[in-house]
Design a protein around this nucleic acid. Sequence first.
DNA 1: GATCCCTTTGTGAGCGCTAACACTCAGCCC
DNA 2: GGGCTGAGTGTTAGCGCTCACAAAGGGATC
Lengths: 335, 335
Amino acid sequence: MAVRGPAMTDVARLAGVSHQTVSRVLNGHPYVREQTRLRVEAAIAELGYRPNRAARALVTGRSQVIGVVAQNTTLYGPASLLAALEQVAAEAGFAVSVGSVRDLDHRSISAVVERHLAHGVAGIVVIAPVESAGPALERLPKEVPLVTVDGDPRRLVPLVTVDQAAGARQATQHLLDAGHRTVWHVSGPADWFDSAGRIKGWRETLLAAGAEVPTPVPADWSASSGYRCGQMLARMPEVTAVFTANDHLALGVLRALHEYGRRVPDEVSVVGFDDVPEAAYFIPPLTTVRPDFAAVARASLDLLLAQIEGDSGGELRQTIAPTLVTRDSVAAPPA
Amino acid sequence: MAVRGPAMTDVARLAGVSHQTVSRVLNGHPYVREQTRLRVEAAIAELGYRPNRAARALVTGRSQVIGVVAQNTTLYGPASLLAALEQVAAEAGFAVSVGSVRDLDHRSISAVVERHLAHGVAGIVVIAPVESAGPALERLPKEVPLVTVDGDPRRLVPLVTVDQAAGARQATQHLLDAGHRTVWHVSGPADWFDSAGRIKGWRETLLAAGAEVPTPVPADWSASSGYRCGQMLARMPEVTAVFTANDHLALGVLRALHEYGRRVPDEVSVVGFDDVPEAAYFIPPLTTVRPDFAAVARASLDLLLAQIEGDSGGELRQTIAPTLVTRDSVAAPPA
DNA sequence: GATCCCTTTGTGAGCGCTAACACTCAGCCC
DNA sequence: GGGCTGAGTGTTAGCGCTCACAAAGGGATC
């Protein structure tokens, strides 16, 4: 199979210099005469030489790869984050290796982290939105640069989070401002920090407004569970405003309300979270909260690179504020 | 910064053997006495030794990483495929490195492939659903194992495809069977093979049934463009059945039909493609075609591993048949 | 002219691993 | 006993690169 390509010494021979000079050219070191540099570059081009990263990784003890540990990369949020991360990493000259885990428990995470470490990744980004991921992260080898996204705010691990509470506050306030007496909430899974943050922001806003705080309706992230919750809410005439923990839940709720003949937004207003691309085409178009995945990715990489380069001094916590996107699913409550 | 962990020689010293014996244990070679193996394994465990893949990759000339080139990994299809690929690759002991490209033209693809090659990937999977990707693939270094997913059927590159035409045939036939005189089609972007295949299956089925073949309505993959096409179709009373190239287009169409007061499925039937998890919660629940991403991923990896191991003899083409998922968006046309 | 410094280049070692080969020690056959 | 086989183990030589250091040459300075 694969014939080994030319190595540095081949380039050196062709250019009539030592391999070390080739290395210097490649790494942009100073103290290489312009003329020499051009000769080396010509030789590189002629041979189609490509540096062998494995060799570099071996000697430097560090590769230009960052490992990502994520749960369900099929979900819109994680998928967007992953894509954004890949983008910024590529710009910084890093490759991204994904490791999906089914569950975010200690064993699964450790296994994937082990895999990444064996491959000598330069750092690891863990998209660890659940409680159970915590212990696994604490037991991780200390020498590996690590950043957590949407992880546990109470742990001493560099962390980038979407400000869930702020998003929820905006959503809830928007509904209150429209004239609703209170806002119901279909929440995400209890063990996700995202869920907790959204519940917190929602509750705080209601309390601040002196509104009654209904019990949150627990769901997972799927349209399916949104539908089930929606069936329940649809039968309760006092429900005029619903804030769901994500857009897919909102979709399920919309469908249930529709089936029960409760018109949105005339009778019931709905606000989601995520701003999936289709949200604008729900019936009716969904008002929702948009997290800035690109910003999260950038912040994560910055935090990681800082650690890789040894500047462990900087800020270890970054919070990215989401924005409310208003569409047609919110109106004043029926008189 | 990272302290280097224990190396093979450390394990060897602790176990009282040579590093080569440790290597043999690690690689499952025969001719290692049971007792020795246990001693080595104990030493490995005690030191928390982890083999250095970079070193292995350097000497063997091949890493345990496969590179994936994909376009928009935020879309449901690519994201699902990527996740499935990662799953099967992990089972086979391979890591997956993603490389997203904005456009699937020669330059972008080459750049990402170069990046993968520099990292010494063992093989490359290109999710290359568009025409323009073709030339880039032909110019790729021949020595790198390569598999194309949903690529150009006319090119001589190992290829795994979802049988788009078969899916489209099922969808179209299902609508005809419900009693519709013909079926309209909202198609994907013209340069995607997926689109072409779906158009082909749709057209063939109509022709075979002796039905009129309307001009396909061109769109991209977004709910947004589905909505625009839907607005047009909604105003045409003769339209009673629509097959959209994916579920998000269907969502847009549903929304447009709703706005124009054309009830689904009573007045117009709609069938999508992809079976996104939310499809069951559209209004109404969407009948759609489900591709088997896991099967595609498995087939791709098999083809790739065959090449990596040198069995270039096998079958170079794999086609995965999708299945129709019937829900509530299809009914007989109005009398 | 001797000394210094700065630029530019080369030399040698070694990162951690696998592959090839050499070696030892049994057991077996003639 | 000599020679064979095969199991089990060790020795050696790199893979392609970077790092530390050495060294050569030229200019400025005294």
